[in-house]
Simulated assay, not measured.
Amino acid sequence: MMRSLWTAASGMTGQQFNIDTISNNLSNVNTTGFKKNRADFEDLLYQTSRVAGTPATELTTVPTGVQVGHGVKVAATQKMFTQGALQNTGNVTDLAIQGDGFFRVLLIDGSYGYSRDGSFKIDSNGQLVNSNGHRLIPEVVLPENFERDSLTISQDGRITVKVAGNDDPVQVGQLELYRFVNPAGLSAIGQNNFKITNASGDAIPGRPGFDGMGQTVQRFLEMSNVSVVQEMVNMIVAQRAYELNSKAIQTSDTMLGIANSLKR
């Protein structure tokens, strides 16, 4: 059986995975805080017929070897944590991070999730929660008689409100952000959340605007960092690569047919 059949098949499988990755990016083009994925590939093992440097004579060696590859495989998928565009929403509980850092939320199982999605709401207990009811950590509890429009979150994360009957704003909380040595090592778990892994390292807490942390921007949301134009170009390239690999299989099949039809 011709080696090229299996080699080209691995190329088609790889480009199918590439299209899957691009499709996921495009489907989340309007997802708040979404970070696009990139598929990385690597070549497979090589069959070596002659090793470079093999002695040719007593005084000379072969300058190059004879190797043939066996195709491609997916090496990794990497999250690209570039800054997304900020969109003005006018909602007092919407927050965007301008720069490095993640919000921390308490998940149902008691573990922590980390997110760039700052579309927070106020629940019946006066706490800031995300769209799935996960509480923002450190917890922020607003007083019962506060004026909603007076809720102010500064760029360094200080949360102040005005209470009915008092004209002076009262600080009710302090936001913290968390960053990682290797954010690409975080595990995406859906619902715009990530979890810590051994590759990401431990979360490094900090006050917004200090020690390398980004600033919090109230009444804004960070949109997806997916570029539709770039993803469409990537899709065209992947489609053409898929077609070329399928053409290699067709050519190999034709060659096998010619060999099979040979007569004495």
Rank of each mutant, 00 (worst) to 15 (best):
N132C: 02
M235L: 11
G33S: 09
V29E: 03
R148D: 13
S150R: 07
R179Y: 03
V226I: 03
Y114Q: 06
T251P: 14
P169L: 13
G165E: 13
V181Q: 14
R116V: 04
G157S: 07
V233N: 01
F34R: 06
S261N: 14
G201H: 10
G157N: 04
V62H: 01
D156Q: 13
A75D: 14
P169S: 08
L244E: 04
A188Y: 08
V226F: 05
F17A: 00
E58I: 03
K35Y: 02
Q171T: 15
V226D: 01
H134F: 13
G190F: 03
G110W: 08
I137D: 13
S115M: 07
R135T: 12
L44Q: 14
Q218E: 10
K247P: 11
A39P: 00
Q67Y: 14
R240T: 05
G214F: 11
N130F: 02
L128Q: 12
V129K: 07
S124R: 15
T82E: 09
V161G: 12
A164W: 10
A9T: 15
N125Y: 06
R179S: 14
V228K: 00
L221H: 03
N145G: 06
I22N: 00
N88P: 01
I97A: 01
I22H: 00
V170L: 14
K79L: 06
K247L: 05
G126E: 04
N125E: 15
N192P: 00
D100M: 11
P63A: 10
T32P: 01
A164M: 14
Q215E: 14
P55L: 15
F180T: 05
P208H: 06
L262T: 10
F146T: 08
M213R: 08
M80A: 04
L44W: 02
A238M: 00
G101D: 04
I19P: 00
K195V: 12
R3M: 10
S246N: 09
N166P: 02
S10L: 07
I22Q: 01
V68L: 09
V51N: 06
A241M: 06
D202G: 12
N132S: 12
H134D: 15
Y46V: 08
V237C: 05
R219M: 15
E42D: 10
A76Q: 08
S27Q: 04
T64D: 03
Q87P: 00
I108V: 11
G257I: 11
S4K: 02
S246K: 05
V68Q: 11
N192V: 05
Q15V: 00
N192F: 01
S119P: 02
I153E: 09
N166G: 02
F194C: 05
V92C: 03
T160E: 14
A238H: 00
A52T: 11
P143F: 03
I159T: 07
V29C: 01
A8Q: 09
S252Y: 06
S119M: 08
E58C: 07
G157H: 04
V229E: 10
V74R: 09
E243N: 09
F180C: 06
D167H: 10
S154E: 13
V217M: 12
N192W: 03
M223S: 12
V170A: 10
V181Y: 13
N193R: 04
A9C: 10
G214H: 06
D109T: 12
Q239G: 02
A75N: 14
A199C: 02
E147K: 13
L26I: 03
S187F: 07
M255H: 00
T60N: 10
N234S: 06
